[in-house]
Design a protein around this nucleic acid. Structure first.
Lengths: 216, 216, 216, 216
DNA sequence: CATGAATGAGACTTCATTCAT
DNA sequence: TATGAATGAAGTCTCATTCAT
């Protein structure tokens, strides 16, 4: 038996050094698996997806997945961490270039919807994950999510200090409402009813409503 | 998963015919099961919940559940239909009593958050369900959800016609944003970070922002 | 997922109260499984035996095994505990009826070989188990085994005190040698080369050698 | 289990042809692998040991093992054959130097226990292997084992012919009892309860008992 | 109607073995 | 020869569903 679970640290990637060389795709096999996972998880949902579905979509054998991830759930977690991480990184590098809080808020709105428009599947996954209830997921996903909300809350807070936003609104409530509004727009879109480009228009309208609503 | 009987129509509800009889609750077994299901689904998530968990929580035998529902998924669907149905019914009967669109919108906001505050568990389920992705669920849940959004959109639309709301915003976008904002506030609360009563304050603030944002 | 392992205590047996009633065998289903397990484990070895083999041999479905045992290993452990327990019980009730240590030693020899002759398969399992190396098994099996050896050692010790056995031999060494000698005879027999009745003759010869060897 | 190639003959040993070359040990890779295998098999048991564990312990790549052995089981078999072979060879060369059967029997006893004391791990493996039950192993291991027992039986038989041993005991039964007694002492020791040097004392005592028991 | 023991399909995961480098 | 990433067969175990009582 000896289920020697090498628990603790993330799995090492076999041969980090020989990167892109062979067939099919430029990316590493780990990335191929993650890319495939986004697709199938989004299409069928996490629970309805079998590991073998991910493997097939990635063009690898079932067992290969376990060379890069500890479990099916670990694939989902990695997905979440990778993507939200990059969203946060993007915010950290781009937002400071803008001067005022309203400008930044508009940017966040476009960004979140833009991310989703580009990766509708990832969008579904991100918003679903934080509602999935295994304790493990909650523990891992929640902090990232909170970090994202806090980043928005800080923009609101800064705007209030600069006199750009009314001060009778809690920055945290505002942040959640903003995130939720974006998410609400996304989800209906993800459910299938919206045509291409609709998100961009929605983003503008939403920004208009929120900024006017937040004006002092 | 085992033995998915591809049967067809909804089951008749044995409870319809001989209402309240036993002890415990006014409703009959079917209701006991649904009540139990809300609790355990919300606590553990749909997939992590076993039929036997629901049975135990409802105080019935595993097999009994199959006298009232065709499958575990059917329990979830019934739950969703019953509750959203009653929410829609409530909207249909109460909103007309209010005169203006802004008033009605405030009412919807309080109602949605109020529903959630009263039934946090049901709240989690409703928002999670529409993101659970078996095709069956999507097909069944989406229409109800859309109906709810449409009800909100009609309020916005009426408000625009009455000159209470700006007209450069799509009622549908507005509806989705409103729903999402509410949901966004709810979910953080559901994730555990907010104290009791916070939802009420958040509702007021949110209504302020949205109404001012939507003002002509 | 929710692998709710009800760890800790032994599993309850479904409906202890309705014992023997229906088809196939008098014994309980748990016993049917244990009986089948002895056979297939002995024939194929523990690791080479699939749970489904045990199930098939017991005439139950695979899943049924998990209603009575926590795992495949738990079946083996239960087997071991049940049988050695009964051997120890037998010793405790029968040996006191004999007067002298030599008589008792002869009885033990006949008993151990008799048990094996009657249950060749169980014999293989008992002797194999204490050499299998999962920590769990060692921890569970060793104490029972030691208890058995100690029972033999006490006979030797008593014999020395009564002047029936030489005193320059450690009772514990003697016990182990006696057990081993019996086991050695058994194993060759189990390997297939001995005809029926050979064990009885071997028992007599062995007793002769050992008793003379141990004489003062 | 995967991919059991039903191939036929033993592999040639690459090491035969170009003996010691690299660092670490006098023997070549094949021997390094066998040495490593003794250690890990004894520590974790055969089934709980992964080929990669053996590889890691031997300091070679997983695939390398298959250059020297046809399968994991073949490693075990080779181990067994090598070691028992050398034990038999030792008996064949050393025993004839002794004059009487009793002397030889004492030598065998010391030898078997001595072998074990020197290589406790190998001891565990030898005694466990003959009880592991894949048919293949039984077929391969049993003959060697029988050969060893026969060698002991011949000593007894010769002793009977020379008038050193009583003749009412079957030499084969005696051989098995002797082997088993030794094994019984070893196993308790292997289970961890005895201190160093205990085996030597046990050997003397055992020899005393057996020789007196076998005396005419 | 109710029960709950039994069923068995199917999921996740492991790991012996292969083979391109 | 040596490597070790990749493979995929197969096993253990879970749990939705059934059905005899």
């Amino acid at each position: 038996m000896a289920k020697k679970v090498a628990s603790g640290q993330r799995l090492a990637r076999p041969s980090d050094a020989r990167s892109l060389r062979k067939r099919r795709r430029p990316g590493d096999k780990r990335d191929r698996i993650l890319d495939a996972a986004v697709r199938v998880f989004a299409t069928n949902g996490f629970h309805a997806t079998r590991v073998s579905d991910v493997a097939k979509a990635a063009g690898v054998a079932d067992g290969t997945i376990y060379l890069y991830f500890r479990s099916k759930e670990d694939v989902l977690i990695s997905l979440f961490e990778d993507r939200v991480e990059s969203l946060l990184a993007y915010m950290k590098s781009e937002l400071p270039k803008l001067q005022t809080a309203p400008e930044r808020l508009r940017a966040v709105i476009s960004m979140q919807l833009g991310l989703l428009e580009g990766e509708r599947e990832m969008a579904e996954i991100i918003t679903v994950i934080i509602r999935q209830s295994t304790q493990l997921l909650k523990e891992l996903a929640a902090p990232k999510f909170i970090a994202y909300l806090d980043a928005i809350a800080r923009i609101v807070s800064a705007g209030q200090a600069a006199g750009d936003f009314r001060t009778d609104i809690s920055p945290h409530v505002a942040a959640r409402a903003i995130f939720g509004a974006l998410d609400g727009i996304t989800i209906t879109w993800a459910l299938g009813s919206a045509e291409r480009g609709a998100l961009a228009r929605a983003a503008t309208q939403l920004a208009d409503v929120l900024l006017r609503g937040l004006a002092p």
